[in-house]
Design a binder for these strands. Structure first.
Length: 1136
RNA sequence: ACUGGAGUGGUGGAAUUGGUAGACACGCAGGACUUAAAAUCCUGUUCGCUGUAAGGCGAGUGAGGGUUCAACUCCCUUCUCCAGUACCA
């Protein structure tokens, strides 16, 4: 019986599928385990061998955990929004949804062939409206949140407005604009628009102006990847920086928690380090320098206030807003020129090309607040607007970049550190004693930092400041293929859609090109963007209600219209009765219960409400007497009752004349235990509200937001959706997220080390703060897989003819890269014949170029010439020849049957279609089987390590599986396995394997696990062990790695049930006990002999034994050893 | 430039905690079986010097230095390559 892997794998894949072997339940008595892969972007190129590396590792671990008795969640999905699909659409007109669908189908088919244990019922696709509906929903929740520094968590905007109406923003500095300061009275006097603008500066997702790469010629914003050397990748048009309105995620508010959270997770130190540096927390001081002859001052941030007396100049970022105000008339032209230059430079260029020092003097001077010294103000590209205050104080003796700048522009350098500064380069030490430093002179720098900071604060020049290198995350893209924002704009105010209106689906467009003024493609769909101008509430036929006629409410939210922001007006204009009640219930006066005034609840706006108790207080005015109004009130009351709210009413008369009775009634009501469906409502929203985002608007022109969300939006929470993928009322049921909790193992590439990981950690923290989930770190443990690089193959060709050269048939005359070569002498005669039509100079030097060859037609380094011939276009005029390694010349016109070789050059590069170095896993699976492929990918090396792909070694793994097969079945004899009793020697092999495989699997050392399997099978074959007792345990160990062959042989051994659920073998140490060991004996650290000694020997016995040994005697040369070091179970070292 | 990672035979890699450097494979060389091929099996394979041989001696983990009885492993200096650097995902 032969090992027919194709049949076996097909058979079991079908059986497992039919039997739903990988179905995962949210309801199990087993302990849970969540293994997650970073889901792929389904590119058009399909899967290459680099993709499955991490997937195989996670699949092995999942299957292993399942055998160990866990309920394992191991899902897969697709990050299917993104730029490539859109670019493809621009080129071909094919709808991204269409190409994405096809690509996903290809990916899934490829993944299935490798035999992964995904529960496909849980598949998620970020571009699926049923998925992005919830991405939009979460966006809305973040939009409705602000970061409370007091409680250190995200809270609803409603809590912020409550605070503002009570105390203004005195205790809550505006994160978006520190200059915004107002009292409660001022707040209450703001109109709706002013109020919304302030709230925007507090929201966790907010709109602001930011710089983008703008390409005028293409009329569009470009990704950094699409910009190469300051011009667009497509077309080569100039690209400049341009300010545009953008959405941002206020991730800086979470900087501290993102830092401290790292202590609670199991990421590699490298990963934590990278995140820490990305966040870049630094402590320093911000201080103001007055500008000479001006009322303006410039604020700088420094981590080294101790060097204040060494400041020789200030440098502003070229984008700094002061630049235009302070530039002197003489310098204006110069500065303008410099600004134009900087505009064309990318941030990376600005930072990395430090050797090239650029800058420009503004003509203005600042005053050092301590000694009154005049300091020239420069601008330079190495200072970035986004960090700190966008201005630095330059201390050339302590900072190398400042030093270079000073030298380059001949700015005199003040030395404040004496001998520590040699005049040749800056010295950033903190150990020097300060000189020339006023009140700081004589102090050690590290001590002076605090003292200087104190002084700065004391004298009012500035204050201590913590800064982060991390910036708020840009959250909008001027693109089509992403989640549309559930936002409409009305008179400059962003109004969120209602949760029930989600998903806001992507409309179809005819063209994927940019919209007007650099907006995204969605801006081209006029009908979609423009919503009907908002009529007045009365025109809309809204039903008025409330004590005064001023209020209108618009029924629900399925149409694109808005209502007047009347809650605000009502809050400002209290009736007398309302004022009396508010006086009694505000500030938690009644038994500590919090009441809100005019707090909208899903379109209804009660006079007062206590959300904790769901108690509404209404004051009836004369308006309610009307018939129409009565009907409306009834409807309102029904809705509220259904949602667990209770309402008590008082008349104006009661309130004004008998307030004590009224208060008592309210207090009594609050004491009652209510039977409500509260728990369920709470789950949707911890505040007990159905929707905290009521419909509001201010009339005027109403338009949709036309940008879309970035790629990371959908991927910031997908791990939660897998837990409850079909839920239509919530993004994830709280029971499900409580059950699965954190991802136990997250596997993916380091390329996501900062971006994706920080964003998803932030989203998790927000959702935790808002009460949607019970954990605030998404990933318990992170494993980073290395990147599989492509191993490219090259050949050389003469530019004027299709003459292809084997690697060593050429000798580079100058150098290959410069594109010239010279013929070897033995080739000259032959070649000159072929080149007879070309004018050659006597040196026989040719221009050549190097081109990629498809790795799939190269065996190692040897090109399959006949395969290559098939791909050549036969109709072109050039003649085709191969110059082989040994100098033979072969025409490509006919099939080659000779033995000369054509050798390609090898170089490791990124794996990519354009480099012809991709290898399709399908080909390998077809040729060797999925089990071989899986084990080979693991055998290549440690998962964490990057390594070039080389297909050659796969046969060794395949041989191993066949060898394993032969332990059970012989090609000729058939069945060879038996049920005999295993010997101790055989059990020793088995248990040693169990121990090693378990350890290796636990620590993700899959490459050594594969070699352990090889050793095991080699040894079993050596002792001719064909015993079921031993073999079936080996099969279970092998199941995670090679599930198909394991299941087939398990079945052949006559076992009941699937091996997927077999019990993992228990390791028993008693088979491995050894009594003695071959000790290596080294003399002065070099191994010279081996002596077999009992393991329980003591130092003295060992010394005696050793000294008797003749080799040791020989090396001692009669002398006594200085020292004998005996490490039990390891080695012995004799020091002579 | 900054941040992080890596560098060990002809190749991928092993050496888990400072304790026999090169496990396990690929490749290569030689051999067995075969009419032949495939498949399979056996032997050898870090490099240099030396020896008919068994063996012996020396060097050796990017380079240079250090700590230690002992260093691929720890420390310092340095070189090269890979990844990320905020609109690729």
């Amino acid at each position: 019986m032969e090992y027919k892997f194709n049949e076996i794998e097909k058979k079991w894949q079908e059986k497992w599928k039919a039997g739903k072997a990988y179905k995962v339940s949210n309801d199990s008595l087993k302990p849970k385990f969540y293994v997650l892969d970073m889901f792929p972007y389904p590119s058009g190129a399909g899967l290459h061998v680099g993709h499955p590396l991490g997937y195989i590792a996670s699949d092995i671990y999942s299957r292993y955990k399942r055998l160990k008795g866990f309920n394992v969640l191991h899902p897969m999905g697709f990050d299917s929004f993104g730029l490539p699909a859109e670019q493809y659409a621009i080129e071909t007109g094919q709808h991204p949804a269409e190409t994405t669908k096809n690509n996903i189908a290809t990916f899934k088919a490829q993944l299935d062939k490798i035999g992964f244990c995904y529960d496909w019922d849980r598949e998620v696709k970020t571009s699926d409206p049923n998925y992005y509906r919830w991405t939009q929903f979460i966006f809305l929740q973040i939009f409705d949140s602000w970061y409370n520094r007091g409680t250190n968590k995200a809270e609803r905007i409603a809590t912020l407005t409550d605070i503002f109406s009570l105390e203004g923003n005195i205790n809550h500095v505006c994160p978006g604009d520190k200059t915004i300061v107002f009292t409660e009275d001022e707040w209450n006097a703001f109109d709706y628009k002013e109020e919304q603008e302030i709230l925007m500066a507090y929201r966790l997702t907010f709109c602001a102006y930011g710089e983008v790469n703008w390409c005028e010629a293409l009329g569009t914003v470009l990704a950094n990847d699409e910009v190469v050397n300051g011009v667009s990748e497509r077309g080569g048009y100039p690209v400049v920086k341009k300010k545009m309105r953008q959405w941002y995620l206020r991730i800086t508010d979470y900087a501290d928690r993102l830092l401290s959270g790292l202590d609670t997770v199991d990421f590699s130190d490298a990963m934590k380090e990278m995140q820490k540096n990305w966040i870049g927390k630094s402590q320093g001081a911000e201080m103001a320098f007055k500008i000479e002859g001006s009322v303006l001052d410039v604020s700088v941030y420094t981590t080294r206030p101790d060097t204040i007396f060494g400041v020789d100049f200030l440098v502003l970022a070229p984008e700094h807003e002061l630049v235009s105000h302070i530039t002197s008339a003489e310098q204006k032209e110069e500065i303008e020129k410099y600004l134009t230059y900087v505009k064309s430079r990318s941030e990376r260029e600005r930072l990395s090309e430090v050797k090239q020092i650029t800058g420009c003097f503004t003509g203005a001077y600042a005053v050092n607040p301590f000694d009154g010294k005049l300091i020239p103000i420069w601008i330079a590209e190495y200072v970035l607007a986004g960090y700190g205050t966008g201005a630095i104080m330059a201390v050339p003796c302590g900072d190398q970049r400042d030093f270079g700048f000073a030298k380059h522009f001949n700015i005199p350098i003040t030395n404040i550190i004496g001998d520590y500064f040699n005049g040749e380069e800056a010295n950033p030490t903190k150990e020097a004693t300060l000189q020339n430093s006023g009140f700081l002179s004589g102090l050690l720098m590290k001590d002076a930092i605090g003292i200087a900071s104190n002084k700065i604060e004391e004298l009012g020049f500035g204050k201590r400041q913590i800064n982060y290198r991390m910036r708020d995350a840009g959250f909008s893209r001027q693109r089509y293929w992403g989640e549309p924002f559930p936002i409409i704009w009305s008179d400059g105010i962003a109004i969120p859609l209602d949760a029930e209106e989600l998903p806001l689906e992507l409309p179809h467009v005819d063209k994927y090109g940019p919209g007007p003024a650099g907006e995204g493609p969605l801006a081209n769909i006029v009908d979609w963007v423009n919503l009907s101008p908002s009529p007045s509430p009365k025109e809309m036929g809204a039903q008025p209600f409330g004590a005064r006629g001023a209020g209108y409410v618009y029924s629900t939210s399925s149409e694109w219209n808005t209502t007047i922001p009347f809650t605000k007006d009502n809050r400002k204009n209290l009736t007398e009765a309302e004022a009396i009640i508010w006086h009694e219930v505000r500030n938690r006066k009644i038994d500590g219960f919090k009441f809100r005034r005019q707090h909208p609840i899903a379109g209804y706006i009660p006079d007062f409400v206590c959300l904790d108790k769901k108690l509404i207080i209404e004051i009836d005015g004369g308006y309610h007497e009307e018939e129409e109004q009565k009907k409306f009130d009834a409807a309102r009351q029904n809705w509220l009752a259904e949602n667990g709210f209770e309402m008590i009413r008082f008349t104006n008369d009661e309130v004004e004349n008998n307030i004590n009775e009224v208060v008592k009634k309210i207090a009594d009501k609050l004491k009652e235990e209510k039977v409500t469906i509260e728990s369920e409502v709470k789950r949707i929203n911890p505040e007990g509200l159905h929707s905290p985002l009521p419909w509001r608007g201010v009339g005027g022109e109403v338009k949709r937001e036309t940008s879309t969300m970035p790629g990371y939006a959908g991927s910031s929470w997908y791990f939660l959706r897998y837990m409850d993928p079909h839920n239509t009322v919530e993004f994830c049921d709280r029971k499900a997220s409580d059950y699965w909790g954190q991802v136990d193992i997250y596997i993916g590439g380091t390329e996501h080390a900062v971006g994706h990981l920080l964003y998803s950690r932030m989203w998790t923290k927000i959702l935790f703060d808002l009460g949607y989930i019970g954990h605030d770190e998404p990933f318990k443990k992170l494993v980073n897989q290395g990147m599989i690089q492509g191993s490219s193959r090259f050949m050389y060709r003469i530019t004027f003819d299709n003459m292809l050269w084997s690697q060593n048939a050429i000798i580079p005359s100058i150098s290959i890269s410069s594109g010239w070569m010279t013929l070897t002498t033995q080739l000259q005669d032959k070649i000159s014949e072929l080149l007879i039509n070309h004018d050659l100079d006597s040196s026989l030097t040719f221009q050549i170029n190097r081109s990629h060859v498809n790795v799939n037609i190269v065996d190692g380094v040897e090109l399959d010439v006949n395969e290559y011939r098939k791909g050549i276009n036969r109709n072109r005029p050039a003649r085709d020849y191969f110059i082989m390694e040994d100098g033979d010349i072969i025409s490509l016109d006919e099939e080659y049957k000779g033995t000369s070789k054509f050798i390609c050059e090898v170089e490791t590069e990124k794996m990519s279609k354009s480099k012809y170095n991709t290898v399709n896993p399908d080909v390998l699976v077809n040729k060797f089987g999925a089990d071989t492929f899986r084990m080979y990918e693991m055998f290549l090396g440690p998962v964490e390590q990057s390594k070039p792909w080389d297909t050659k070694g796969i046969e060794g793994v395949h041989r191993f599986l066949r060898k394993l097969w032969r332990l059970f079945f012989d090609d000729i004899k058939g069945k060879v396995w038996n049920e005999e009793k295993a010997t101790d020697a055989e059990l020793k092999i088995l248990h040693r394997t169990i121990k090693k495989i378990e350890e290796d699997t636990e620590r993700f050392s899959f490459n050594t696990a594969v070699s352990t399997f090889m050793i095991c099978v080699n040894e079993l074959a050596d002792v001719k062990c064909h015993k079921k007792e031993v073999l079936e345990n080996v099969l279970i160990l092998l199941t995670p790695y090679a599930p198909h062959i394991a299941e087939e042989l398990w079945d052949a051994l006559g076992n009941e049930g699937s091996i997927l659920d077999a019990a993992y073998p228990k390791f028993d140490g008693k088979y491995l006990i050894e009594l003695s060991k071959e000790y290596p004996i080294s003399i002065n650290g070099k191994v010279r002999a081996n002596i077999n000694m009992s393991l329980d020997l003591q130092q003295a016995d060992v010394e005696k034994l050793i000294l008797q040994n003749e080799i040791v005697q020989k090396w001692l040369e009669g002398k006594d050893p200085k020292k004998i070091i005996y490490v039990k179970n390891k080695m012995v070292n004799v020091v002579v």
